[in-house]
Design a protein around this nucleic acid. Structure first.
Lengths: 183, 183
DNA sequence: GCACCAAATTGTCAGTGACAAGATAGGGTG
DNA sequence: CACCCTATCTTGTCACTGACAATTTGGTGC
């Protein structure tokens, strides 16, 4: 075991993902992360400063991943909505931190930039609708789309949804989102 | 100052609401609540057992309040949706705890019962639509309604929404929710 | 080979949640 | 009135945590 870990920063972020998936972001302990990575309890501070710094990095990574996932889903707004829900379920640790601004530094430039790109991905999806709305209607439509997918994802993660929906959040959300744009 | 507080349980819940509104549920400290109420650091445990116990009580109270707010808004589903958003913003401390199941005991009978009543209030609102859907479509519609209002409320509380929306979440959400049911 | 810098360590401090043991008030019963 | 019983609250303690300071280690550039 070398004195220098090699890639402690990445190892800590990965450990944080596991820890948050197990016990939620509130129970996250820097000392626990250090133990998981096999380093001393103060090592994390050299890479992230403090706990908020680590979560800021995690949130920024999350916004980047979400942006990639949305764009990979194509232009179709329904597809992007389903991709949003899938991202939330497949990366619940990132997702839970991203939308809990009291946990990290929202004004971090990297987070701000990545967040903007994500919002843009949803807005441009509205432009790709069969009969794209314009002006204020377009803004409201993007907001409605964001709200419905975000709400579905949050409720799913919180275990608030009835079990009759099955275990495939993508398929279930597709049926729900469709109600917003097709009828 | 008498040895017995009088209504410490209620005072602690009220203090918890203030504390969560100020710093979020993750930063909640039982000892801080005790200081706010002017009692010793171990007094809270006699009323709630532990931290999860206190948050369980807060969640149960939140579900009761939400249920009341929804039913007071009338049968109209749009009105109930707006009431849902207003509740979230006006009682953000309750709301933030209610949908964070890792913070409290979800299986608490009082919480389970109150949560069921809330879900029922949304479902029955779907039945009051001009052309009410039936069967699976009704379920999906209720889910879509819940998702869109929950998502809007969560995003609003998280400060993720653009400031052009103004400062009245009720009015803003009304325009957004309308897109789901009228067109 | 040497100076320097980044990375990681040990040590410490106040704050926290949980628990145990003791003190206090306020009835209810005899 | 004397007694005790129970809920309520206090004091004391323990392990754990985040943050910070001081120190050691290892690699890199000159």
């Amino acid at each position: 075991m070398p004195y220098h870990h090699g890639d402690l920063r990445r190892a800590l972020l990965a450990a944080a993902v596991s820890a948050i998936e197990e016990h939620g972001p509130a129970a996250l302990s820097l000392r626990d992360l250090a133990r998981r990575a096999g380093v001393s309890h103060a090592a994390p501070s050299h890479h992230f400063g403090d706990k908020a710094g680590l979560l800021t990095a995690l949130a920024a990574e999350g916004f980047r991943l979400l942006d990639e996932a949305l764009r990979a889903a194509g232009e179709d707004l329904l597809g992007r909505g389903v991709a949003y829900v899938r991202f939330a379920v497949d990366h619940r640790a990132h997702f839970e931190v991203m939308f809990r601004p009291e946990l990290y530094r929202r004004d971090d430039p990297e987070v701000v930039a990545a967040g903007r790109r994500t919002a843009e991905a949803l807005r441009s999806g509205v432009g790709a609708l069969p009969t794209p709305p314009t002006g204020r209607q377009a803004e409201l439509s993007a907001l409605a789309a964001w709200s419905i997918v975000h709400g579905f994802a949050t409720l799913w993660l919180g275990g608030a949804l009835p079990s009759e929906l099955g275990d495939d959040p993508g398929a279930a959300s597709r049926e729900v989102i469709r109600l917003l744009f097709e009828r």
